[in-house]
Design a protein around this nucleic acid. Structure first.
Length: 571
DNA sequence: GCCGTTTTCGGCCCGACTGTTTTCAGTCG
């Protein structure tokens, strides 16, 4: 079973225990374990089979370890089956509705036998909710709205989408009189691949009307709540935005707190407690008498617990606190480190612009080299090139080379890995290409062993020097194909093939945790945009964000090197 | 259920907002 499947089992256990009114900390343990497992790049099933000690993973103890073993060997969890027998299946689904938690779900079930979203909708429409204890007309209306939203499937948004809405809103709010400072926080600031909402923090002068202006925002579809220090609206696109107004003296503590992640914050607070301190969004306090010690700057929080500043992208409680303690935080790669882009497409296949236009854009980006890498013939919808077509195209690239001073064009191709692991173009023509990117664009639903063999076979072709988007996933749209990544990484290392972090915001593939594993195993990485137009070359930043979240440093990434040094690594 | 360089028992982050209440429970992040 995949990690996601195991994680889902623990989420369901947590949901049912929650509804049953179990000890909330016990519930949290299951949720923590689920989150940990889902975020791991190693497959838990493989770890069990290799008899690795799962209890060394933080948040996994004896009980959850035993359940994982059972799930791996039997394909199911008896404990979950027992729980399911006690609680109707629809109740856990009700928890997904905004504003409904375990207590209300239980109440609805006990009083009105509501056990599905459908029944809840009917009960609400019939006006039967308003008479329940602790509920009223407003709750009933809110629940109907939640159901509507839920059915519309509004969930998470890609980071790149978040950027568009965040920039527009920040532009609007910064002109409000009295606004001194605005910062996005939350998963947006940590540059997660998707965001569930947008958190914006503000410092304002006396009498500032920022909350009024915010809730009047033209793109707001609905005002969810409005208060002195916190307001929330939902934009027309469905994205929820929270604005919080803070005092200058506690701004740093708040920025830290609202940046998260939750797991990182808990770990920091825990550490503070051991030191006789209390850290909250209002500052750092001495525990015994609540005396305020600091909090104006974000650095204050880290300083108070004896740590250097930790970059937001690392704050996931994935070892950053221990690394900071030992002075071993990575020196994260930055956008300015990038000297070239090694995957892009032109009008010769499914791109929009010419070779020269791409080169011109590279000049604007300050790059010293790019590789032009159009598709091979197997990608029919993209008008992929056959041997003849590529030969002509390579000559074109050569012709344009030198027309834009300072930018060297490398002849390249993105060649398809066919179902049997052979390549879509003959070796003769691949030899003519300096950058040969291999990638999978078809037959995604193979078994893991077969897919792993397929990719490794392609890596063994001596002409291949980059493996692109190694898992094939499309964020929020398509799951990654089944593949044993550690095996693929090892093969890439052995063969001298570079692994791509695809910067295209729909892909971000390798994802953060996978990039980290690859780096730790000793693989070389490249961050490429896969641009299909000149403008898309600006998407490089999203690849850099992903790399940073994967603890990647400039020295791990070949396109931070000057051309000659980079070419030496590219076999 | 997990965890431990004070602890193997007794903690586990904590505050804002809403809607229902007349002081607070539930939900959220």
């Amino acid at each position: 079973m995949e990690n996601k499947g195991i994680a889902d089992i623990f989420v369901e256990i947590a949901d049912i225990l929650d509804i049953q009114g179990e000890n909330p900390f016990r519930v949290r343990s299951y949720r923590n374990a689920a989150r940990t497992i889902e975020n791991m790049s190693q497959r838990v099933e493989a770890m069990v089979k290799a008899e690795e000690n799962l209890e060394e993973i933080p948040g996994i103890g004896k009980s959850i370890h035993e359940k994982i073993e059972e799930i791996v060997s039997m394909g199911k969890c008896r404990f979950l089956e027992e729980l399911r027998a006690k609680v109707p299946a629809g109740l856990t689904e009700l928890l997904k509705l905004e504003g409904l938690g375990p207590k209300k779900v239980k109440l609805l079930y006990d009083e009105l036998a509501v056990d599905s979203v459908d029944r809840l909708e009917k009960a609400a429409q019939a006006g039967r909710l308003r008479d329940l204890a602790g509920m009223g007309l407003k709750t009933e209306e809110k629940i109907l709205k939640s159901i509507e939203k839920y059915q519309a499937g509004l969930g998470r948004f890609k980071l790149s989408v978040g950027f568009i809405y965040a920039q527009a809103l920040l532009e609007y709010l910064k002109d409000v009189a009295g606004v001194k400072r605005l910062d996005p926080a939350g998963s947006f600031r940590r540059r997660m691949e998707t965001i569930g909402d947008l958190d914006i923090l503000a410092i304002c002068g006396k009498g500032c009307k920022v909350m009024d202006r915010f809730t009047e925002y033209g793109d707001a579809a609905e005002v969810i709540s409005k208060g002195e220090t916190k307001s929330s609206v939902r934009l027309n696109c469905g994205l929820q935005v929270d604005v919080r107004v803070l005092e200058e003296e506690s701004y740093g503590a708040a920025l830290h707190y609202f940046t998260g992640s939750k797991a990182h914050n808990i770990a920091i607070r825990d550490r503070a407690k051991d030191l006789g301190l209390k850290v909250s969004e209002y500052g750092v306090f001495r525990a015994k008498d609540e005396k305020r010690l600091s909090g104006a700057k974000e650095e204050d929080v880290f300083k108070a617990v004896g740590l250097p500043f930790i970059q937001p992208e690392l704050r996931e409680n994935r070892g950053e606190i221990q690394a900071a303690e030992k002075g071993k935080l990575p020196h994260l790669i930055e956008l300015a480190d990038i000297r070239g882009d090694l995957q892009m497409h032109t009008a010769a296949t499914d791109g929009k612009n010419s070779i020269a236009q791409m080169a011109q854009k590279a000049k604007e980006m300050g790059y010293s080299y790019i590789a032009i890498t159009d598709h091979s013939k197997a990608v029919r919808v993209a008008g992929g090139l056959d041997e003849k077509g590529l030969a002509r195209h390579l000559k074109e690239i050569e012709k344009v080379n030198g027309q834009i001073p300072g930018v060297r064009l490398l002849k390249g191709v993105e060649v398809d890995i066919l179902a049997d692991g052979s390549l879509d173009l003959k070796d003769d023509i691949l030899k003519e290409s300096r950058v040969v990117i291999a990638s999978v664009h078809s037959r995604f639903n193979m078994e893991e062993k077969e897919m792993t063999r397929r990719i490794i076979k392609a890596l063994k072709n001596p002409n291949v020097n980059i493996l692109a988007h190694p898992t094939g996933r499309l964020i929020l749209e398509r799951e990654p194909y089944k593949v044993n990544l550690p095996e693929v990484f090892q093969a890439a290392i052995d063969e001298g093939v570079v692994l791509e972090i695809n910067a295209y915001p729909d892909r971000l593939d390798l994802r953060d945790v996978d990039a980290r594993l690859a780096k730790e195993m000793g693989a070389k990485l490249v961050i490429s945009t896969d641009a299909h137009s000149a403008l898309q070359m600006e998407l490089m930043k999203f690849g850099v964000f992903t790399a940073r979240r994967g603890w990647v440093e400039a020295k791990d990434v070949i396109n931070t090197l000057p051309l000659e040094a980079m070419l030496k690594i590219l076999r």
